[in-house]
Design a protein around this nucleic acid. Structure first.
Lengths: 156, 156
DNA sequence: TCACCAACTGAGACTCAGTCTCATTTAGTA
DNA sequence: TACTAAATGAGACTGAGTCTCAGTTGGTGA
């Protein structure tokens, strides 16, 4: 399902069209806006982003559409840990996990088959019907480690 | 570090005493209250719990103490996924992960060395300084699966 | 034992994300 | 084209969490 923006937009609009949701200018605008945001975004980022364009969709409409898009599998909820709900576009069905830098907030995505396998095993063991999962590792990215080290050196 | 409530309370009070934090009646009350709550709790649960006791500590004081206790390693932040910040007492240093039932909200804790190992490997690979992590698997617990199945059967 | 002061406290105003209501508008259909 | 259920916007509301500030107090040094 790797595709460019236009193809993705067409795909998403098609999904919406064929769901029980009505196509409205607001919804089109929200979807278009979502697809221009690289990486993760919060619901309120979207409100701000749409405020800044000519497109119009109110806060309530945006908040109403997000769960519907999650339901349709267009968006995926990402637990950002230190912040409110965040979402990402499901353009690649391979599930990935996140490394989050506590200092600069950078999010590094990675895929780990070993972790996926272990999760399946745990769920089987507990008779748990696995729906989705999120692994977030917080700490310091390479760049922030370097910066902190150099600050310590210059301070001493 | 497995111990009973009294020992744990003594240990925590000792930690507080030897930190740069002052011992106040409010802080003692908050810590005592935290130790009576089994499992996870939200900051606001604590506010409510303390409201219901003779002990007194204001909302602001409680919210101020929580990060300090996390900093001291007495509490650990747990991402509950569908809700606001939740915490748990670090009485057992072995890190555990969570299975969360989307239907009844039950949280099942588990320890998985395979996952821990994979995380260490990923961090090394990305030159990421691992501080902490949280894995949350959402889905349906055994009981809820059974209930849903029986509802389906009786409906058809 | 006392005096001092930095740390702590409570009350309540504030902020911000998210939800709800309700009158109005509109997409899709028949 | 007319109808109606779904969608919309404005803005009030809710609830978690933060901030401010005047008053209080724990712990230390004399």
């Amino acid at each position: 399902m790797t595709m460019n923006r236009e193809e993705l937009e067409a795909e998403v609009m098609d999904l919406l069209q064929h769901s029980e949701l009505r196509m409205t200018p607001q919804r089109r605008a929200i979807v278009r806006q979502i697809l221009t945001i690289p990486g993760h975004f919060g619901a309120d980022d979207l409100v701000t982003a749409i405020d800044q364009t000519q497109e119009e969709a109110s806060r309530a409409t945006i908040y109403r559409l997000i769960p519907a898009l999650v339901e349709l599998g267009i968006l995926r909820e990402v637990e950002h840990g230190y912040d409110h709900s965040h979402y990402e576009v499901v353009s690649d069905p391979a599930h990935h996990e996140h490394l989050i830098c506590q200092r600069c907030g950078k999010v590094i995505e990675f895929v780990c088959p070993a972790i996926e396998g272990a999760i399946i095993g745990v769920c089987r063991e507990h008779n748990f019907h696995h729906h989705q999962h999120g692994l977030e590792i917080t700490g310091l990215c390479r760049e922030c480690q370097k910066e902190i080290d150099s600050q310590h050196l210059s301070a001493s």
